[in-house]
Structure formats: C-alpha cells, structure tokens
Write a protein that binds this DNA or RNA. Structure first.
Length: 271
DNA sequence: AGGGTGACCTGTCGGC
DNA sequence: TGCCGACAGGTCACCC
C-alpha cells in the first residue's frame, strides 16, 4: 500500500502528537521482516524527539537512538490514546505518555528496526544505498538523465529502483509514465533529454497531487488517525485494465514487468 | 555491473 | 460451495 505519499501522510498524521512523549512499554506480535535489533525493554524511558521520513521509511528519532519503520506492502500505523488490546495482524506497539503507536501489517513485509544512530550499520544497511528524494532539490534533470544513461532496462522497472529515485512504487510509477506519455517498455537509457525532463516533472506532479488528497486507499490504507486517502479516484491507468483511457478513450492495457503489473494506455504511451 | 528471478507472508478474488 | 492458482501498495539476496 504505502509509497511515498502514503508514508508521508502517515508521518504527518502523528508526528506532532507523539513528539516529546516518553516510551512506557513496547509489545511485539509475530515476527516482521527484520528483528527489532534490541530488547523491547531497552526503549523504555526514551523520549520521542520527532518523526522524519526517508524514502518509504519513517524515522522515529529517540533520545537514545531511532526506530526505522517500514510499512511493507500491507502495513499501516495508528496512534491513539485509547487502544484495545493488540489484535490480529498487529505486530508492534509502543505505549507512550501521549498515546500508543501501533503497526498493523497482515503480510508482515514491514519492519521496525532500532538503530543507535542514522549512521550505524543497522541503519545504513537500510538507508545507505538510497537515491535522492523525488521532491527534493537534488533530484535534478541532470542527475536523472545521467543516472538513466546507459541503462537498457525498461524505464518502468528503473523507476522502482530506489537507488535511482526513492518513494516511487508501482502505482505512482505507472501514473507518472502515463502523465509523461512514455511507454513503460522504453529503454531507460534511450529517453531523450526532453522526455527525461517530462518524466521527472510527472513524478513530482503525481506525488504532490497524491499528497494533497491524502494518498491512495486501494484496500485498507489509512493514516495514523484512521483517515483514508482519495488519490485512487484520480488514477489514470493503475488498476484500470480494460477501462477507457481518460484522455483518448483507448482501453487501458496491462503487462508484466519484473513480476509487477504495468498499466498503460497504448495510444497515449506509444513510445 | 546491470539485469532478471525467487523469496518472504497472508488475504482475496476469479475460474472451474 | 469448495478448492487452487494468481495476484496484491516492497525490497532484499542471489544468479548469470
């Protein structure tokens, strides 16, 4: 579920409320993708200094380190002062003086990992290889063009590579390519400078729009206050196989690339 | 080195 | 109705 917009919306929905809280207790459910990396009790007494985001990770800064929280495919966070006992698919919970933060993740591809600092090996293993943030100033046309040059892989596949640019997942990769009118099978390294620029702008446009409407709720995404997003109502191609293109009326097609579904308009995205 | 595949895990949906 | 395979918002380890 969670790509950059959903992760950022989640962050915004509880960062203020949890800032300054002291950790009272940490409870674990079934194992997530990676182990926590410390005794849960070791976190007790630490203070939450703030919540940042890097790529699709939430970084919960603590007085004694940080937690890297990833939502995987099916994860969502909830922050509330009134919480029932941990239920099915709830695998991490942190009780604080200002409320309880809880991760629900049916598929358990998500993770909560403790690191002493953003630079230690536990954090660097997850963050060290990441490329630029798509909405920050270092994601430039020059960088993008240079990084794509020489790549023979399909541009759709390359957009999902976090070493190239972070935060773009399957929904927004499809949507950005549609907006830029680029065929998902086009070789990344053969895109003209003009098309690379168009694609960069399309990535930023689609992510900003999704952020503005609270992200995409396909099945069950909601922010830490339980509020859903509405970007799914505006999707041009994702999950619209066989439906008419909203621009030209051609029927949206699918194909498989890197074991993921690609959706595109055969007319608007001829090349 | 870049590119492609399998693996992780659970739920849901469509087809027979 | 029931079973079975395919697929789902991610990303890492591994192969050539």
């Amino acid at each position: 579920m969670p790509e950059l917009p959903e992760v950022e919306i989640t962050r915004q929905s509880f960062a203020q409320a949890i800032q300054g809280a002291k950790i009272l207790r940490v409870n674990l459910g079934k194992a997530l993708r990676w182990p926590l990396g410390c005794e849960p009790s070791a976190l007790i007494g630490m203070q939450v200094l703030g919540v940042r985001r890097r790529a699709k990770y939430l970084l919960v800064d603590l007085s004694g380190g940080l937690l890297l929280v990833h939502l995987g495919m099916s994860g969502s966070l909830r922050f509330s002062s009134a919480m029932p006992a941990m239920g099915l698919h709830e695998h991490f919970e942190m009780q604080t003086t200002q409320g309880t933060l809880r991760l629900k993740d049916p598929r358990r591809f998500g993770a909560v990992v403790y690191a002493r600092s953003p630079l230690d090996t536990a954090a660097q293993k997850l963050l060290g290889h990441l490329g630029p943030e798509p909405l920050e100033s270092d994601f430039t046309v020059a960088y993008f063009k240079n990084t794509l040059s020489g790549k023979t892989a399909a541009i759709k596949t390359v957009l999902l590579d976090a070493r190239v640019v972070v935060g773009v997942g399957n929904i927004y990769a499809n949507e950005a390519l549609f907006l830029a009118k680029i065929n998902p099978k086009a070789a990344a390294g053969k895109l003209s400078a003009e098309r690379v620029q168009r694609l960069l702008q399309a990535i930023q446009q689609v992510l900003k729009r999704a952020l503005a409407v609270g992200g995409s709720t396909l099945k069950d995404f909601s922010n830490a206050q339980g509020k859903e997003g509405y970007f799914q109502l505006e999707m041009m191609v994702y999950d619209r196989e066989g439906e008419p293109c909203r621009v030209c009326g051609s029927l949206v097609r699918t194909l498989r690339q890197g074991q993921r579904s690609t959706f595109y308009c055969p007319q608007c995205q001829k090349r």
